[in-house]
Nucleic acid binder design. Structure first.
Lengths: 351, 351
DNA sequence: CTGAAAGCGCTTACAG
DNA sequence: CTGAAAGCGCTTACAG
């Protein structure tokens, strides 16, 4: 006897029970494979199975999940659109890894985005609780909401190193520190003595790690590096030329999901008719996903995004399973990309 | 008093009720916005809201779904991986549109894949019932499962035209028929009189529509078109040369998500040192998402994937809302792509 | 060996 | 104006 008007509805365990002449819990037992090992006559079992078959029974995942308190859903939260319109977006390789590993572990993926949502809305973030656990992808950490998740014991993993919550936040990061230092060392070996480092204005662990690596290599090699923070608009051809006039022979750019820094340098160079590595060397602290047609391959390093995605899923499912929280933070190595934009320093102009 | 061992768990309406000194259903009423317009004292309302706030209450989407029979989740089912490793995959633009419109309508996206799952497993498909409705993306229709969904009144929409279930399957397709006819007409206008049409071996509505368009234009213009079915392996340089020797001046290739046909032709041409449009014209019945670096832009037509994604979401949410099932099938127009691979026919070789 | 009960966390008539 | 009840469709102890 239902109370709502309902669409032609699927058979339930109750229907099967009625048809087989047993109780509904018995149906659940039989169809659940009887994991508890309860004694069941073969005859009853068969009657139930036949009834289920004849009715075309399909278990309702919602009800099952309510009683079992787990739903085999992994959330993926991106603070910008998961599928941005610039097709070559750097999230994609993470998604490849996340999907692969989630499928391998029998989880489905639930996509959440705060894009378009009002700022700081914790309700938006709370939607993720629908999933058994959630992956987060973004340059920053909304500390209040994440703190609450952690307090509640809600399983979550960040993709990207984050120390905003001290040691509490589980993450899978990449070794930007060593990889960035290597880039500078390669430039030093080629003979560059004076670099400009162009980075985004805002701070994030991903920025701090790159700059730390750069600084350590600068200290090791004795090259000079001027750090320039930009929001994109303030790097133009004139500025680029003034750096070169000051003796800068190589420009190192931070890589971020928006790639503001490197894009600004490239535009300024193109506008000024400057070419890499003839006029100056250009290195990226990272890589560009899906090279833009017409642009040369940037020298830099490859971030193991796919493997990071996989590792993050493994960490998350481990947390969900309540495994001993050993490897709660993980850093994967990057590998160098030779590219086409780095070479020996240009000969200084004659005076 | 719970019976299972539980992680530190979130507050429920029962907890709020206890704290506010009201019944649990009253809490539900207050938090649900009291749509029924039940009388409620402001004081009670406020006590409940305060208690919810102080406990950090978040409704359980699963429980809500069980009683409300809806959960603001839209499924997206892909029969291959949603994020294939070849970065430039044609699903991406669909996903952009789907995400945009889903976000605009307040739905989250639930990703399902049958990739890796055993063939024909209906259980795999049944997972989608967790969502309020589901989008399907794929060349083929598993008729039995889809028929059952339709019988049950489960809301679903295919992206791509499909008539495997007669008129029953809701879809958003693209007008491959007209667009394909236009491609042939443009070739005819350039002077081509003999084409080879290279298509996949297996049949699907997307194939049938392209071929229908091709044939209608062939009939109109009086050009000749030889239809060749390929699985990729059987189109090589020798075969390509023999077509040209027979007087074929333009090759038209079917576009599919795997792009077997066009890839085979391109490889054969490259291997034989043949160039387009100098040695022959090459047109695609569709477009290539994210042009492969180094390959020329193919002549063909653009499929409005993003808009198809958006339209499919709108159709699906309409179905979920039980709107009069008027626009249950929708075909969007494509627009021509000039590209670089089509030109006038080469001069016939001297004999 | 099998049935009846309680519970998962909500919503929605229905009494008072 | 508010509370108690029933129900969504399952699972899992617990009695017999």
């Amino acid at each position: 006897m239902t109370r709502h008007e309902r669409r032609p509805s699927r058979p339930t365990q109750a229907d099967i029970a009625r048809l087989a002449g047993v109780s509904q819990p018995t149906v659940s037992l039989v169809l659940g494979g009887n994991k508890a090992g309860v004694a069941l006559s073969d005859e009853t079992r068969q009657r139930v199975l036949d009834a289920a078959e004849s009715l075309g029974y399909v278990p309702d995942p919602i009800a099952r999940r309510l009683s079992r308190r787990t739903n085999n859903l992994l959330g993926l939260y991106t603070f910008t659109a998961t599928f941005p319109t610039d097709v070559q977006h750097s999230y994609y390789p993470f998604l490849v890894g996340v999907e692969e590993e989630a499928a391998a572990q029998g989880y489905d993926l639930l996509l959440f985005t705060s894009s378009g949502a009002y700022e700081g809305a914790t309700d938006v973030l709370n939607r993720v609780r629908l999933a058994d656990g959630c992956l987060f992808l973004g340059r920053h950490v909304p500390e209040k909401a994440m703190g609450r998740f952690l307090d509640d014991g809600y399983p979550l993993v960040y993709i990207g190193r984050h120390d905003e919550l001290g040691e509490r936040l589980p993450y899978v990061g990449a070794d930007y520190v060593s990889a960035s230092a290597d880039v500078v060392r390669r430039l030093a070996e080629l003979g560059h003595r004076h670099l400009a480092y162009v980075r985004e204005k805002d701070d994030a662990p991903a920025s701090a790690d790159r700059e730390a690596g750069l600084r350590s290599a600068v200290a090791d090699t004795g090259v000079r590096a001027d750090v320039v923070r930009t929001d994109g608009g303030d790097v133009d051809t004139a500025r680029l030329r003034s750096w070169l006039a000051d003796g800068v022979t190589a420009i190192v750019a931070e890589e971020t999901d928006t790639d503001i820094a490197v894009t600004a340098v490239e535009s300024a160079a193109r506008a000024g008719g400057l070419r890499c590595p003839d006029d100056f060397s250009l290195a990226l602290l990272g890589d560009r996903v899906g090279r833009s047609p017409g642009l040369p391959a940037l020298s830099g390093f490859a971030i193991p995004r796919r493997e990071m995605g996989r590792a993050a899923v493994r960490m998350l499912t481990g947390l969900i399973a309540g495994e001993p929280e050993a490897r709660i933070r993980q850093i994967l190595g990057c590998h160098p990309l030779a590219g086409e934009t780095v070479g020996a320093p240009p000969r200084p102009p004659e005076h």
